[in-house]
Amino acid sequence: MIGPYYLQLLILIGINTIMATSLNLILGYTGQLSIGHAAFMSLGAYGSALVTLHFGFPFLVSLLCGALFAAFFGIIIGLPTLRLKGDYLAIATLGLGEIVRIVFLNLELTGGAVGLRGIPKKTTLLWVVLAVLFTVFILSRIIRSRIGRAFIAIREDETAADSMGINSTYYKTLCFGVGAFFAGLGGGLFAHYMRYLNPNSFGFMRSIEHLCMVVLGGLGNMWGAFIGATILTVTPELLRTVADLRLLIYGAVLVLMMRVRPQGLLGQPLRNGIPLLGRFFQQARPKL
């Protein structure tokens, strides 16, 4: 009915949707620029894979363990860095992501540079679809709740939010924790689909890929994350027909898409000439 290749693409679209939606919570709704999402994914992937391999837990439990593991580290790592803003936060998360990768590269437990083998294949399309629905459901509930309004308030103006009695550090930590949880879930699904893990795939280019998905789809839009994930998963595969020119065109596509629709496909248009996140970025402005 549907060939393994298309099945694989659908599964990857699903996993990337989870990654993009969870990053969207951090970036699109709370306005925190994180370039270390792949690290959370790898924490979830390794966490759940190790649990499966060593304790033989049922799939759902392993996934949960991986996700909680990622969330735990998300909070631990996130706490100190959340004091940072804008590009500084971005570069700090990038650094943290690289540190996580290097640690995995050197751990005996995770197979080091050789990688982790023999993870059983448990992820199916059904699991992925359920996980995507679960992620989208929970995240949209959060966004429509009091917590979500606090997130958006922080995005719009952190100082103002603080003065309205919103504990921005608490909410930012919460946001990173939740985002990392779902990134870990995506990582767990990924690990049990690929059956092999190697830290090299969780470098900063992968984080950048997630970032592109969110921005391309449109910040602060659930559908946007899905559409961004779909486009950026499918386009490189589609471009396989042009062989040598594949990544050349891919790069050009990114530039062109931003030119045509800088707010992303489903992003909110600019308000009062202030770009989304614009206000937020105006802080910590360096002087030459």
Binding site: Y6, L9, G217, I227, T230, T235, L238, L265, L266
Partner: peptide, 14 residues
């Protein structure tokens, strides 16, 4: 429109 775009992309690889 975006959903259609996604479908078209998928159909295109198929």
């Amino acid at each position: 429109a975006a959903a259609v775009l996604c479908l078209v992309l998928l159909a295109a690889i198929a």
